[in-house]
């Protein structure tokens, strides 16, 4: 009874608005940041990948690995009967196409490596002891302010205006 009271008092419009412009929480911000880092490592962006496809014959495939684009001719052979057991390594490789490095890394299961072992994972530089510096996400100069919604840095009202109109996570997520 007592828990339901506040929601009765609030109008539905208020609720809807607050949901729409609600804060993006820490996990979502982190997710967006790591997605961006992944994008920065990509060879080609989505537009180019599509351009690549439209030049060749367009094929639909049930698998969603981006690395396979352009390998259509070879996949068709193996892809016709997915249930058939494949015998040779050659055919297997032909069917699957190249894997992304992240897939190989997952498959290698380096977390279970022996204690003494140094691996790809342990070789990564640890995080810095210094706090991250703050640059305006719009113009690049030193930033003083932060967008309350998505946590991006901004230096001035002008840049903040540009940020809310174009980049704020409310729109990109």
């Amino acid at each position: 009874m007592s828990g339901a009271r506040p929601s009765k008092r609030r109008s539905t419009r208020d609720k809807k608005t607050s949901q729409r412009v609600g804060l993006v929480d820490k996990a979502e911000r982190q997710q967006a940041a790591s997605a961006r880092l992944d994008r920065l490592e990509d060879d080609q962006d989505a537009g180019e990948a599509l351009g690549h496809l439209s030049d060749d014959e367009f094929r639909l495939d049930d698998s969603d690995e981006g690395a396979q684009i352009g390998e259509g001719r070879k996949r068709k052979k193996g892809g016709k009967r997915p249930g058939v057991k494949r015998k040779t390594r050659g055919q297997l490789a032909e069917h699957r196409g190249p894997k992304a490095f992240s897939t190989l890394l997952d498959e290698a299961e380096l977390e279970d490596a022996p204690e003494d072992g140094l691996s790809y994972l342990t070789a990564a530089a640890a995080s810095s002891v210094y706090p991250a510096r703050k640059w305006c996400s719009v113009c690049g100069f030193a930033a003083t302010y932060k967008c309350v919604r998505c946590g991006s840095q901004c230096c001035s009202r002008k840049c903040f205006g540009t940020h809310t109109e174009t980049r704020c996570l409310k729109f990109t997520m």
């Binding site: 961006r36 920065l40 530089a125 640890a126 995080s127 810095s128 002891v129 991250a132």
Partner: peptide, 19 residues
Amino acid sequence: FSPGDLGLQQAGLAEAIVQ
């Protein structure tokens, strides 16, 4: 020199040398 600018949780080059 400061990967934190991009949100990458890693040390910069000078710190990586120290590590």
